[in-house]
Design a binder for these strands. Structure first.
Lengths: 177, 177
DNA sequence: CGACTTGGTTTTTTTATTGAACCTGCGTTA
DNA sequence: TAACGCAGGTTCAATAAAAAAACCAAGTCG
């Protein structure tokens, strides 16, 4: 499958991945949230090659995640700033940071601490249900077809699990653990 | 920079990206949360080539995100199941889904709806501060060096924005170094 | 004038991905 | 018993993408 077909899939993960699903892009966005804005600064901090950086920034601008705004004239120079669409990626970045803090931190602990200005405390991000406020766990969530789902007969990539065909029963001695 | 160096960076984003920062990997994980578990089923749903699928599954198992468990003997066959470490990726996946729902949905609306079993309602995921419960916004968060930060003189990739050198005011032609 | 800065592009080499075919162990059917 | 099918891969040639290094251009500085 080609990547330009991804954004046409009837799946929000596929569509999002078509925009940010690239290693360098995610690292660029991390730096954006740390107030990095200029080509040379991205390049120095990330250690990415210049052609790749240029191509990723170009794509993020095309997708309206970053905006290229002039910060001086003569010589005319631009910096890259998060748009609202880009700022909305914050939960994704924070979720990634938090998973890394929990599962990938070295013995010395996490590299960064996050302080919530409103309450003053060092915090972790927690994902909750918008309706009842309880923290989310995968087993507490059921998935249903939405209005933008692909047509049912195709068994599309984002069809809910409970509409797919029955799995063969487990016959192993070491089944379900 | 090579990807095997990423996991050694003093940055939780870089470390997480070294595990899941690949387009196919993210789509595989999406399907894992939809209860897909077998090679053939991943392959049919994703349209990924078999060598890539095999290499990604192998890496996810190596990183303890998935576990390869037998579901039958004679012939011995395995399926791939999320470990706890893998289940903990749920907020990342949900954040990705939600951004796609908001910013990439077509006219017909979102492809999938999520129902919270505990409260019964269709919901959106919301990321809040673990300490005060308020929704997070990037401007309400300050970043500080944690115990696992790299040494300060190197100006590491995850040094907090407010410890880096002051940006030069607009209209200057020679930026800081 | 000549050097330097920012923000790139070009070119060559190396690496990763695709697409198609093939392999293995075992069970099933004729 | 042979032939076929299935799940879960591996192998191989062709193609695409990324890395590394050099180059370019507009403009300013000394």
């Amino acid at each position: 499958m080609r990547w330009n077909k991804l954004e046409n899939e009837a799946c929000s993960v596929a569509r999002t991945v078509s925009v940010i699903g690239d290693r360098w892009t995610l690292l660029i966005l991390r730096d954006c949230f740390l107030r990095v804005r200029r080509f040379e600064e991205f390049q120095a901090r990330l250690g990415v090659t210049r052609p790749i950086l240029a191509s990723r920034l170009r794509k993020l601008v095309k997708d309206f995640v970053l905006a290229k705004v002039p910060y001086q004239e003569r010589p005319l120079r631009y910096e890259y700033r998060l748009t609202q669409k880009g700022l909305d990626l914050y939960p994704i970045v924070m979720a990634i940071v938090h998973w890394g803090d929990v599962h990938m931190a070295g013995k010395k602990g996490r590299p960064l601490l996050h302080q919530h200005v409103s309450c003053g405390k060092t915090f972790d991000p927690v994902m909750i249900c918008s309706e009842c406020g309880e923290p989310l766990s995968p087993k507490q969530v059921h998935v249903h077809r939405g209005p933008g789902a692909a047509s049912p007969r195709h068994m599309p990539a984002d069809a809910p699990a409970d509409e797919r065909k029955q799995r063969r029963p487990i016959r192993s001695s070491r089944a379900h653990q």
